[in-house]
Design a protein around this nucleic acid. Structure first.
Length: 419
DNA sequence: TCTGGGGTCCTAGGACCC
DNA sequence: TCTGGGGTCCTAGGACCC
């Protein structure tokens, strides 16, 4: 039995955040299309969130790069228009896009806020895959007002690489038979999973194109990079067979919340307050999802050199109480902090279990009373908004009492090395 | 006026057990 | 006069993605 070749599409919104803004503004009477002038979506400099999140083509032509600071972008492109991000709008656009795509097939995997895989195997009734892709592309442009790039292949990896090859508003096929001609001449850093650390190492080994990597001895790569080497070799040869996993099925492994504080934190009390604001949100998300966590971790990013370090601890019993998590965070923080100025703090919980299946332990502090308090606070915030109940410690602190989004916005199955 | 925030997976080393 | 060796769990850090 030979299994039939699959047909996979990868759909990728071009310059997503900027395109969402542009489309929304045009629909609401704007006369200028942000995509046609030098522009970018970037956070506020005053609160030290000023990096480029998305940019227009004219800005890109000036040399503006995603991830760089606003002042750098302005040096290259003095008249660049800066727009502050509106994540609620982006989630609306995301939802609208996914709704539209659902009409083509339910074999669909949401990959990020602006990316999606469709499995259209056995849908010949729609005609040639190119025709289907074109139909999707035009429908999105007409109904949602932004353009996408689509890659077509027989697996997710190649579809994804394909969608990246021609932009914007384009369709590219990248079937295995096309690899020598289309993919192997590309620089090795264009390969999915070859990042800033791996690329220089490969270069040192004389590997500069994806083809160089594909023709490498796999044993040598294995020796050099362990399991990573095998993955790289497979990817360079277009080998990848994960399924398009239907939306919503992926199991969440952990949740985190972190923030760059708009001033350097130099005392413990302020750090505690920031940690609490982060835990408040994580705790609510945890309870909202019906989870308890067993591992709590705290990350500190130093103001001095922007490097970070973290500590974590596994608890004897899973918890979901804001205070329980906060207590642990404080202990972790005390254990690790050496007194240097802090730019950024993060809290993360993992090793999640369903909250209805946990056992009470007589050894750990009993959090039953706290659970009830959390439940009441959650209900009030759900009904009257996150700001309706605030801990008094924040009142004159100049800090936000809750940090980070309360995401009904599904956390995405996000990128793993096994696509 | 320096560089965000949300994820996943892998590895190495130490503790501890048999 | 010897320090083998396998296994699991835990933690810190690094790599990658959007």
């Amino acid at each position: 039995m030979d299994s039939k070749e699959r047909v996979i599409l990868h759909i990728d919104v071009n310059n997503a955040f900027l395109a969402f803004e542009a489309a929304f503004r045009l629909q609401h009477g704007a006369t200028v299309d942000l995509r046609k002038i030098p522009s970018a979506v970037a956070g506020a400099q005053a609160t030290r969130h000023g990096i480029i999140l998305a940019k227009s083509l004219p800005a890109k032509q000036c040399g503006v790069k995603t991830g760089e600071a606003i002042w750098e972008a302005k040096q290259k492109c003095p008249n660049i228009a800066i727009i502050h991000p509106d994540y609620a709008l982006y989630m609306c656009c995301h939802n609208a896009l996914m709704e539209l795509l659902k009409n083509f097939t339910d074999r669909m995997q949401i990959f990020s806020i602006d990316e999606c895989f469709l499995d259209i195997t056995n849908m010949e009734l729609l005609g040639d895959p190119l025709k289907t892709a074109n139909e999707i592309k035009e429908k999105i442009k007409k109904e949602l007002g932004f353009t996408v790039s689509i890659g077509i292949s027989s697996n997710k990896l190649l579809a994804k690489i394909g969608s990246d090859m021609k932009k914007p508003d384009a369709i590219t096929t990248l079937y295995p038979s096309e690899l020598p001609e289309k993919m192997w001449p590309l620089p090795v850093e264009d390969l999915y999973m070859v990042g800033n650390a791996t690329a220089p190492k490969l270069h040192k080994m004389g590997i500069f194109t994806i083809g160089d990597l594909a023709r490498c001895d796999i044993e040598w790569l294995k020796y050099k990079f362990k399991s990573w080497g095998i993955l790289l070799w497979n990817y360079a040869n277009g080998i990848e067979d994960s399924i398009v996993s239907g939306s919503g099925h992926s199991i969440i492994k952990g949740m985190g919340n972190s923030t760059t504080i708009h001033f350097d934190v130099e005392d413990k009390e302020t750090a505690y307050l920031v940690l609490l604001s982060l835990v408040e949100t994580v705790g609510m998300r945890l309870r909202y999802g019906g989870f308890c966590c067993r591992v709590v971790s705290v990350t500190i990013k130093k103001a001095e050199d922007l490097t970070s370090y973290s500590h974590q601890r596994k608890l004897a019993v899973p918890v979901d109480c804001t205070n329980a998590i906060f207590e642990e965070c404080k202990k972790l923080f005390d254990r690790m902090w050496k007194g240097e100025p802090i730019r950024h703090l993060g809290v993360r919980v993992s090793d999640l279990t369903a909250s209805d299946s946990i056992q009470l332990s007589f050894l750990e502090k009993n959090w039953e009373k706290q659970k009830k308090v959390d439940a009441v606070i959650d209900r009030i915030r759900m009904k009257y908004g996150p700001g309706s109940i605030v801990r008094s410690g924040f009142l004159r602190s100049g800090l936000a009492p809750l940090q980070g989004g309360l995401s009904e916005d599904v956390s995405f199955p996000v990128m793993t090395s096994i696509l």
